[in-house]
């Protein structure tokens, strides 16, 4: 086979292999942003506990995906979790919308559920969602349950009065 053709094919082969490695390293292996096809506006929400919520988790309203979780940070002033929600510009939500961290399925991933309110005004860029509901932490739930159970146990009946 011709020398230049050979070199060309081998160069193509090596380039393809390196492209595959880069794909594995960036797209599969670590975080990188692939969104950008939709225009979004971001709103803020503060939670006391976000459980296992991760960046790029879906934001759903009535079960429909309307956006993605953008950024998660700890608020330094009051130690709450700051969550930025990137919502599709097609959807407008009332200002008294509430956000809750929910879990899809028993072992599924966590997402943010939005329940729209009744206000006439809609959320704009950098607005804050005031009504939030934290993620359910299983240990706290069990602890509460046990505490309630213990409180329910009937105290030994007092001796009958004569």
């Amino acid at each position: 086979m011709n020398r230049t053709t050979l070199d060309l094919w081998v160069g193509f082969f090596v380039a393809l292999g390196i492209a595959a490695l880069i794909f594995l390293a960036t797209k599969v292996g670590s975080y990188s942003d692939i969104s950008g096809s939709h225009t979004t506006y971001s709103v803020k929400a503060y939670f006391k506990n976000i459980g296992g919520l991760k960046p790029r988790a879906p934001v759903k309203s009535a079960g429909v995906v309307v956006g993605r979780v953008g950024r998660i940070r700890l608020n330094k002033q009051d130690y709450t979790a700051y969550v930025r929600l990137d919502i599709d510009s097609d959807y407008a939500f009332p200002t008294d919308t509430s956000a809750a961290i929910l879990t899809s399925g028993l072992l599924g991933e966590q997402y943010v559920g939005l329940v729209p309110g009744a206000d006439d005004e809609t959320l704009k860029k950098d607005d804050i969602i005031k009504i939030t509901q934290d993620a359910v932490v299983l240990e706290n739930l069990i602890g509460q349950f046990m505490f309630n159970k213990a409180a329910e146990t009937p105290t030994p009946a007092p001796a009958p009065a004569h």
Binding site: A25, K27, V28, G29, S30, S32, R56, A57, V65, E109
Partner: peptide
């Protein structure tokens, strides 16, 4: 399956220096 969940969960779980 949700596209974002597919990639985001994958990226969260796959570590370059460990798995790749």
């Amino acid at each position: 399956v949700d596209d974002g969940a597919f990639w985001s969960q994958m990226r969260a779980a796959v570590r370059f220096e460990h798995d790749v």
